Computed example of a mutant assay.
Amino acid sequence: MNKKAKRWLLAVGAVLLAIVMWGFVEPYILDVEEQEAVITNLPADMEGEKIAVIGDFQVGLWLDNVWTARQAVEDVIEMDPAAILITGDYLYHVESMDDPKLAEVMDIMRPLADSGIPVYSVLGNHDYAMSAEDAEPNMELAQGLADELRTLGVVMLDNRNEILLEGTDEDFYVVGLGSHWAGNDLPNEAFEGVPEEAPRMVLMHNPDSFAMLEAGAAPVAVAGHTHGGQIRTPFSSTWSYLSLFQGGEVTADGWIEDEYGAEENDLYVNRGIGMSITPMRINSVPEITVFTLTASD
């Protein structure tokens, strides 16, 4: 091998090493995405209210991202939004309620309980100990986690809805769907009792649940699960390691603008905090989303 070829190999190796090293740094960078949530029939007295979204802590992965999860909790408390929505996947490869990682999750969440800010959440597939879509859901773990979160004052919304903000003319609802992989995303149950014209946001873990919603049911829906692709090609919103597992191109974060879901429904995908398989992120920094409620024209 001549000297020129060796130099090229060394240069390529140095670049690859730098990318890998950066992949272990990026999980500790926390991005705040400011977005508008354009809501049908939003009462005037709710205009400008803020809703913060975090999720996908994935506590239990080797070199998991507990530091950033704690920082995200601290940051959203300082923002003092009207409410906080959490997209699920608190755990990663935890099989029983005896696992010490469960106590770590509760410790991360406890400041939210102490803050007095209303917190609403759903569960994700890893909260059922499901690392693959065809895995058997651990119902005991999921129920136990949900019960523990309730003791902290978290309102669990798996196929339920609650009035998030009381308005002068209309109440504002948050509707939650259960885990898609666990076969527990049931829109008919989730929307039961929500007036047809009532303003609302819809919370889910997996973006695949969004396709199940009827037209106009979700003027703003928010999901997690994808980690923004976690490791993805720069300058591309659609190619990532997620594409390799799911096939084709996957839009893994932000507003999903492709033809997906029914008319008059809009989905935003949050990149989350934690990681799967490997404790790296490349071109997909952890995210807090802050929505400002805005009335539709």
Rank of each mutant, 00 (worst) to 15 (best):
M1K: 11
T292E: 15
V122K: 06
A37R: 07
K6M: 11
Y128D: 05
M275N: 14
D134Q: 10
T292D: 14
P279C: 08
I108R: 09
G228T: 02
D89A: 11
W8D: 06
D31C: 09
M1W: 04
V76H: 02
D45S: 12
S131Y: 03
T40D: 14
L164Y: 02
V66W: 02
E189W: 06
L213H: 02
S284E: 00
L293A: 11
F210H: 03
L164R: 00
M109R: 06
Y28K: 08
A14H: 02
S296H: 11
T40I: 10
E166M: 08
E34W: 04
E33D: 14
G229P: 10
F191G: 00
M212D: 15
G272A: 04
D89E: 09
D208M: 13
A217I: 00
G55I: 01
L10I: 06
E36C: 04
P199K: 06
V154E: 09
D31L: 08
D107M: 03
A18E: 00
G274H: 08
A135I: 00
A5E: 08
W8H: 14
I117R: 05
V122Y: 10
W62G: 07
L267Q: 05
E162I: 01
K3I: 12
I256F: 11
P118I: 02
G13I: 02
R281E: 07
H205V: 05
T226K: 07
T40W: 11
P137H: 01
V290C: 11
R160S: 08
E133I: 15
E74N: 13
T289S: 14
D75A: 11
D258I: 12
V38F: 10
K4F: 13
G13H: 08
T233A: 14
V94W: 03
V202W: 06
H126M: 07
V222Q: 07
I29V: 15
E259W: 00
Q58V: 04
G261A: 01
E78V: 10
V222H: 05
G55P: 12
L157H: 11
V269I: 15
D89N: 12
A52I: 00
D253G: 05
W255M: 09
E34D: 13
